[in-house]
Computed example of a mutant assay.
Amino acid sequence: MSLDPNAALIVIDMQKGFADPGWGPRNNPDCESNVERLLESWAASARPVVLVRHDSVEESPLNPNHPGNALMDFVAAAPHELFVRKDVNSAFFGEPDLSGWLDERGIQQIVICGIQTNMCVETTARMGGNLGYEVLVPIDATHTFDLEGPGGVRLSADELSRATAVNLHGGEFATVLSTDELLERA
């Protein structure tokens, strides 16, 4: 499989607020550098880039009234064709309409990276697969945080990332690969 000449890179929620210690332990310290490599590759090939920002309606570091709502500097400076704002997990429920924008341009292949692996990245990838797009997720261009579930069960960020990779790839929502593997196809 190779990358389509118009494959869209969708960069999810690479926001300064995720540096807040309140999120807890995170995984994949290489996430930011891998996202930057993807942005550079997309700029060099003139493929479309979509930036997505989570505008939390709750009191959180991602609330628009907080400085943490801002995109990381290297992402904010990246050339892009569309900027989507959302307040839910899926970029397909943001403004402007991501699916409509992709369809108007005949884009069928999307690459999704960013934060958090098991939240907004996974939800957007699942919806993209359900909507009929060919979805690729360079899992090492994502990161997440430890999370506690019912009954005090706690999973580490690494466990959650592995579960997302299995859910997306094994469930045929997306092709999960590394940034290096993806860039070899560019």
Rank of each mutant, 00 (worst) to 15 (best):
A43I: 07
V135W: 07
V176T: 12
A44V: 02
G128L: 14
E58A: 04
G68S: 06
G151N: 11
N28A: 06
D20Q: 01
S178H: 02
N69L: 00
D140W: 08
G24I: 07
D73R: 12
G68C: 10
A174S: 15
V176H: 05
P79N: 14
H54P: 00
G106H: 11
R105F: 09
Y133A: 05
G100A: 10
V11Q: 01
R105G: 07
D30K: 05
E159Y: 00
E184W: 01
G129T: 09
V111S: 02
G171L: 12
S56Y: 08
N65A: 11
L136T: 15
G22Q: 05
G170E: 15
A91H: 01
N65G: 07
L71P: 02
L51C: 01
D146C: 09
G17L: 02
N89V: 08
T117V: 13
F92W: 11
I12G: 03
L183S: 06
I115V: 09
Q116W: 05
G128V: 01
R185C: 04
H169D: 15
C113H: 07
L183P: 03
N89M: 07
I115S: 02
G114P: 07
L168D: 06
L71G: 11
L71I: 05
Q15F: 00
T117I: 10
P61T: 02
F93C: 09
G100R: 08
G149M: 09
